Amino acid sequence: MALSPQTQTARAWQLVLEHVESDLLDGRLQPGDRLPPERELATKLGVGRSSVREALRVLEVMGLIRTGTGSGPSSGAIIIATPQGGMSALLRLQVAAQGFPLDDVVRTRLVLESAVVDALAAESGRDTTPAHTILHAMDAADLTPREFLALDAQLHQALAEASGNVVIAAMMAGLRTAIESYVQAGAEGISDWDAAAERLRHEHRAILGAVDAGDAERARTLVHDHITGYYAEAGLSRRIE
Rank of each mutant, 00 (worst) to 15 (best):
F148N: 06
A140D: 12
V61W: 09
S114L: 03
Q184R: 15
D212Q: 10
A210I: 06
R57K: 14
S22I: 02
L200M: 13
D225W: 02
G48P: 02
L159Y: 00
T82W: 12
G235D: 10
W13P: 06
E113S: 10
G76Q: 03
L29T: 01
R28V: 06
A81I: 04
E147K: 15
A216L: 07
T221A: 12
L149Q: 12
I168Q: 08
F148T: 09
E180Q: 11
R107E: 06
L175Q: 00
A169F: 01
G32E: 06
R39P: 04
G174C: 05
S114K: 08
A121K: 02
A97N: 13
I240G: 09
I227D: 03
M1P: 15
A234C: 09
A160W: 02
E161T: 07
S75R: 04
P73Q: 00
A121F: 06
S51A: 15
L15Y: 04
A121E: 04
E180L: 06
V95S: 14
A97Y: 04
H204V: 04
V58C: 07
G229I: 04
L90F: 05
G125W: 05
A216K: 05
A232L: 11
L24M: 02
T133Q: 12
E54D: 14
T69E: 13
G46F: 03
Q8I: 15
W193T: 01
G63T: 05
S124P: 04
T133F: 07
I80N: 04
M172P: 07
H156A: 04
S4E: 05
L110P: 06
M172N: 13
R39A: 13
G235W: 08
R201K: 14
H19C: 01
P36Q: 03
M171Q: 12
H226V: 06
T9R: 15
A170S: 11
G27A: 02
A162N: 01
L59Q: 01
A141W: 00
S51Q: 12
P73V: 07
G186A: 00
I179D: 03
S88H: 10
D118R: 14
F148S: 09
A42W: 05
S191L: 07
V20N: 07
A153C: 11
A122K: 07
Y230G: 11
D26T: 15
A131E: 00
T82G: 11
A160P: 05
D103I: 08
R238S: 13
T9F: 14
L110E: 07
L135M: 00
E188Y: 05
E233G: 09
I78V: 14
G27H: 08
L200Q: 03
S237V: 02
R109E: 15
E203T: 05
A216S: 12
L93P: 09
S50D: 14
P36D: 14
S191R: 13
V95F: 05
L149W: 02
D118G: 05
L222I: 06
M62S: 11
F148G: 10
S181I: 09
V95T: 14
G186V: 02
A131G: 06
R66P: 07
H226F: 10
